[in-house]
Design a binder for these strands. Structure first.
Length: 272
DNA sequence: CTGTTAACCTGAGTGC
DNA sequence: TGCACTCAGGTTAACA
């Protein structure tokens, strides 16, 4: 499940292989992703040089020398591999971007929740990115902002911070872990948080995400060959996936509750 | 507007 | 061995 730290890990991993490489050709084998892949994407991307790889939330933005951009999203099960050209295909290898150094970037996504989109240079804003909340590491995301946004909201704070309109990058794992570290129960109504709690929660979201980025994420989505083993942040989890186990801080049994169709683990003693 | 639920999709896991 | 079933969750659409 790629969340922000996983996507950032992929971005950093791709950069040395892709920057300044020219795309020779694009082999598109499956257009039915989260949204249909534009049929003209291969010809539009061909012969373009890759100048930047940026990230916005969980979207990778590949900047080309023409000023156009591609948007790559891994969805739930997407992976990107850098491989030598001619590497054997396996099921769900949906697209190849063949580079001018004999390598290719292969997009692989069994569940097809991912996306490959074209963002023309004349469009200053993309509809998918326009209404996204702030990046967690920017100044715009702070305690006062979270406090103001949460006033009058009755939904559970966990669902609130997972809403990409509020802040991007807090997926199920990191939302649960941030709330544990902030000592806030995930079911608490967002509008009932104090200003101090909002400030603390912002700090903990940043802390958890930055630690996870530093450790390469929780579920490793290696672009270069390793297949789905755990990233090192797995070892740092306090509540996610630990229902029925003892809290690592107080020893209480970690509880599981379903919030908005998502599993939410918390410690009933450490989180109030 | 807010909040809830279902839908998309396939592989992995479980129970019988 | 195989079948039926559930679950995983990022994001959006549809609904109350």
């Amino acid at each position: 499940m790629p969340e922000l730290p996983e996507v950032e890990t992929v971005r950093r991993g791709l950069e040395p292989h892709l920057l300044q490489r020219r795309i020779r050709a694009v082999q598109l084998r499956e257009r039915r992703l989260r949204w249909p892949v534009p049929a003209q994407l291969p010809q539009l991307a061909a012969q373009r040089r890759i100048e930047r790889i940026d990230r916005r939330g969980k979207y990778l933005i590949v900047g080309l020398d023409s000023g156009d951009r591609m948007i790559w999203h891994l969805g739930m099960s997407g992976r990107l591999f850098v491989l030598p050209q001619g590497h054997p295909l396996v099921k769900h290898d949906h697209a190849d971007f063949e580079l001018d150094d004999g390598q290719l970037v292969r997009f692989h996504d069994p569940r097809r929740f991912g996306a490959l989109l074209w963002w023309p240079r004349e469009e200053t804003e993309h509809v998918l990115l326009r209404e996204m909340g702030p990046e967690p590491f920017t100044d715009a995301f702070n305690g006062d902002y979270l406090f103001a946004q949460s006033r009058g909201r009755s939904l559970a704070v966990k669902n609130f911070i997972m809403d990409g309109h509020i802040v991007v990058g807090a997926g199920n794992i990191y939302a649960a872990e941030s709330l544990f570290r902030a000592g806030i129960r995930p079911t608490r109504a967002a509008g009932k948080l104090t200003r101090a709690q909002c400030t603390l929660l912002v700090a903990k979201i940043r802390e958890v995400l930055s630690e996870a980025v530093a450790l390469g994420g929780t579920t490793l989505r290696d672009f270069a060959g390793a297949r789905g083993e755990s990233g090192y942040f797995q070892q740092e989890l306090f509540v996610y996936g630990r229902e029925g186990e003892a809290c690592r801080v107080c020893g209480s049994t970690i509880k599981l509750e379903v919030l908005g169709a998502r599993q939410s683990c918390y410690c009933p003693r450490c989180q109030r």
